[in-house]
Design a protein around this nucleic acid. Sequence first.
DNA 1: ATTCTAATAGTTGTCATACAACTATTATAG
DNA 2: CTATAATAGTTGTATGACAACTATTAGAAT
Lengths: 233, 233
Amino acid sequence: MQTENLSQRTAETLRAQILEEKKYRPGEKLPNENELAESLGISRTTLREAIRTLASEGLLEVRRGRGTFVAGELDRVAAESVNMQELVRMQVTLRDLYEARMIFEPQAAALACKRATDEEIERILALGAECQRQLQIDPRGKNRIASESAFHGAIIKAAHNDFLSQFMPTLTQTIEQTFALNYNLDVIAEDAYKDHILIMDFLKKRDARGVKSAVTVHLHHAVQHEQISFEEL
Amino acid sequence: MQTENLSQRTAETLRAQILEEKKYRPGEKLPNENELAESLGISRTTLREAIRTLASEGLLEVRRGRGTFVAGELDRVAAESVNMQELVRMQVTLRDLYEARMIFEPQAAALACKRATDEEIERILALGAECQRQLQIDPRGKNRIASESAFHGAIIKAAHNDFLSQFMPTLTQTIEQTFALNYNLDVIAEDAYKDHILIMDFLKKRDARGVKSAVTVHLHHAVQHEQISFEEL
DNA sequence: ATTCTAATAGTTGTCATACAACTATTATAG
DNA sequence: CTATAATAGTTGTATGACAACTATTAGAAT
C-alpha cells in the first residue's frame, strides 16, 4: 500500500526521527530547509508541506528567519490530543468507546442534577418532551436522533464542567458515526421512551443517584443489541 | 499583530469559508488549486501549504487526480479532537479537569482489577514498590513523579480499554503541566504512601470495589491542598 | 449493441529556481 | 561605548514546468 504521497511519508519519517529515534530533541533546531531537503533527497517544497503537517500537530514550531524547532516537552504534551480519527484508525473497539461513555455519562448526569439552574432543568425537560414526541412520530427519523442528542447534550452541559462539555459530544458522535448502521432503532424506541420518563422524573426531584442509575440503564438499553457485555462496576 | 504568515492566514480564511460562511459544503469539491490560488490572489505553493494544514486537521481531504474535498459531516465529527492545548487556552479550570479524572480513573482501576493478567498485576506491584522507594528517598524528586505516573499508567493500561489508555495519560499530563508548580509534594507524600499500600492490597485480592475506593481516596488526597471541593458522586 | 482499450482532459504531486522578508550577529561610524 | 548599518542565515512566496494519478470519452474489436 504505497498510497501515501511523499510529503506525508516525509512527515512520518520526521515524526519517527523525533519521537522514536530521538534524532532531534525537544527544543532543538532542525537543519535549515535546504539542507534537510537535500539530506532527505526531496525538494524543499515537499519538505515544507511535511513540516506544515507536523507544525499543525504541534510537534514542530516554525519561526521565520530563525529556523524550525522541535516543540518543547511541555508544549508537546499539550499537543497530544485525543484524536477521534486516530482512534478509529487504530481500531478502538466499540466496546471501548461505549465503556468510556458508560463511565462518565451517568456521572455527568448526576453532577447536572446538583448543579443545574432551574432554567436549565426546565430546558432539559422541554427537550425531553420533544424527544418523546419524536419517538412516537418516527422512531427511525433523523429528528428523533437529533432531539435525543440535544436532550443528552443539555444534561451534560448542565453539569457545568467545560471539559466534559467539550469532550462528551465528540465521544458520542464518534460512537454514532462508527456504528449508526447496525443500530436497531425500533427495538430501542420502547425502552428509550420509558427511560426518558425515569431520567426526567429524577431530574425534577434532583435525585442525583436516581438520575445516575437511570442514565446507566438507558445506555445499557441502547447498547444491548450490539452484543457487547459489560462488567459490573 | 500581523504576525502570521500568508499560508496560515489562508488556512484560516478557508476554514471560515467552510465552517462559517458555508461557501463549501461537506463533501463538496473545492475549485482546483490553480483556480483557487488565483481567486485568492496567492501562489499555488502557498495555497497548498494552507490545504496541508486543513487536511491535517481533517477538515479537507485531498484525493490525487480527483480534487480536494470538504470532509463529509461524519468525517468532520471524527476530526473534532479533544485538544488539550485548546482546553488550556479556553481556560478550562483545574477543577473541571480533576473532576474528569476523578470520574475516570477509579473506574478504570476497577476494570483493571478484573481484566489484568497475572503478569500485569505483578508488574503493577513492582512499579508500586519502586514508587514507595522513591517516596522515601526524595518525595519531591523527578523520579518520584515519574514512578508515580508509571504506576498509575500501568493500572490504566491493565483495564484493557484502548480508548482509556490513550485518553488518561493526556488528561493527567495536562493536569500536571497546568499546575505542577503549586503542588505541595511533601504534604502529599505521607498520604500517598498509605494510599499506595491500599491500592496494591486490593489489586492483589482483585477487589474491584476496594481498588476503586482506594484510588478515589488517593486522588482526593492529591487534590485536597488545591482547595477544590468536589461534590459527592 | 457491447465490451474492451486507448486517448484525453482534469487534477494533485513534485521539482528547481529565484527572490522577498524577517532575525540575529557582526562590523562600522560617530 | 553606543547607535547604526551591513551581512549572513533562515523561512516565506511566487512561477513555471512536468510527472503521476483518476475519470471520462471516443473508438475499435467482438
